[in-house]
Write a protein that binds this DNA or RNA. Sequence first.
DNA 1: GTGAAAGCGCTAACAA
DNA 2: TTGTTAGCGCTTTCAC
Lengths: 319, 319
Amino acid sequence: MSTIYDVAALAQVSPATVSRVINGSSVSPEKAERVRAAAEELSFVPNRTARSLRRRSSNMIALVIPDIENPFFTVIARGVEDRAREAGYSVVLCNTDEDSTKEAAYFDIAVLEHMAGVIVAPASDASDLDRIASAGRPLVAVDRRSHDRRVDSVVIDNPAAGREATEALIAQGRRRIACITGPESVETAQLRLEGWRSSMTAHGLDTAGLERHADFRVLGGRAAMRELLALPQPPDAVVATNNMMAIGALQALHEGGIRSGDIAVASLGDLPSAPVMPENTLVIDLPARALGITAAEVLLRRIAGTESAPETIVLGTGD
Amino acid sequence: MSTIYDVAALAQVSPATVSRVINGSSVSPEKAERVRAAAEELSFVPNRTARSLRRRSSNMIALVIPDIENPFFTVIARGVEDRAREAGYSVVLCNTDEDSTKEAAYFDIAVLEHMAGVIVAPASDASDLDRIASAGRPLVAVDRRSHDRRVDSVVIDNPAAGREATEALIAQGRRRIACITGPESVETAQLRLEGWRSSMTAHGLDTAGLERHADFRVLGGRAAMRELLALPQPPDAVVATNNMMAIGALQALHEGGIRSGDIAVASLGDLPSAPVMPENTLVIDLPARALGITAAEVLLRRIAGTESAPETIVLGTGD
DNA sequence: GTGAAAGCGCTAACAA
DNA sequence: TTGTTAGCGCTTTCAC
């Protein structure tokens, strides 16, 4: 493990010059070359910890997501990671289980570790993003906006996604279409629900009693579907506003012995690789990877020091 | 952001004493109390970067896995993370896509970042674990042993898992049982295959032409199953040595229009949450979480300085 | 038990 | 453009 002093000695320059070469400041060509040769010779690699200490910022980015078992978020993670790594940053993946307490603990760590920035899919509207913002760390919300409008957000056009799913079911001839959405405290859940509602009313269809709030997870989707099945007049289709609840809904249909085709399910977002896709299932692709890439780009820009007002980037579902 | 100097000044002791209190060295009770009060007062938290620089070791652990989309590995990750976090370490998740080059890049980062240790499910037997070992960083292989016998390993009893799956199929009355396993360069794949083979021969069943090597992924499993279906005499069951290949095999069966029940599939490891589990499917539970927890414990012990000879811990499939 | 002082390896003023 | 120097915040000898 050689240091810039070793390199400086071998190249017969000062440590500062070595540092400049590493960081791309202006150095005369011949000295730069000597430094490069010396660094090569000693297989020198800069000590990132020392750099972080001095710069008061590391090259780690925290990515805080609510559910690592959900492929939607792992795809986002891969998008973030690919872009971040290109820029020389490492990504620390933090899983919160939709739990704001766990989330807060991760935020504290991010600050303590002097992480360069944080990308978060907030567990709820109550997420304490201020913990990060007030510490002056760049922060980007992804997939879900925060109530804190000071932070950048990268989201999907959620109402459009809700409408798209609903329209597709209507086009299949479905009329009594229910919607299973996420917690009321998550804006994404509300917006997708609104998309469904607007499509329904636009087509003159009744929505009364057909909304259900669940938890964005399999069990919640299943329970909600069971309730819908128990209605005096069950739906003939359902929009699940995320993939996990769609799986839960399909499970409930299967348990209930519903004939495939009697009730159609539209999922917002790809299902985890399944052996067989049930025929009555419709998937609306969500641009998860683009979400991750874009969030990383916005964050990197903030890390680089861009000072513009916080922005919300809305990605179309077709992206 | 206060420092130990601020705390020292307020408590009227030297910075060294503050450091000692933080790290639990012997300090007189009254001074210790003064320091604690001062730290509380200033809401002091030690700067981890400075500590890492000084100690030449951070409190980050790298977890390098081949496939973040595979729930088997995410469950391992959660096991690792839970245990690591208890001990005050953060976990950096690194996804290699079964690619040794990507893996090597992560190893380099782990060394550069002075990470406290690395847990890896090696992409192949050719994985260059020496990169870490020779840098003196603690290293534990999980799920897959390395050819490098200097490192600790935590694995499943793979032959037993292979046998268990095979015996279960035999108990169902299956006789012509194929095996789709992973790459030849991955020991885990070989051992599970051997488990299958030993059960087959123990029951006097023929194994000729019924082995397939794939890549532990959905597409590979599907292709292998197609080949098996194209055999003059196709199998009546198949053991897939991991969950993703089991999904691929089931897909191939579905595409091939095979009646459910004609060919049974046994999967080593839980399937990702699926809407419906096909009836002809059998899952052998693998103790993924225990794998993660145990690997973390072994690593933490090494980080703490245990100097015993490298060990291989084999977890029973019943654990 | 406690404090003074010397760094860990790097970067950023400040001079030259 | 280049070098000198002073830290970033912490830990750890080494004296006392």
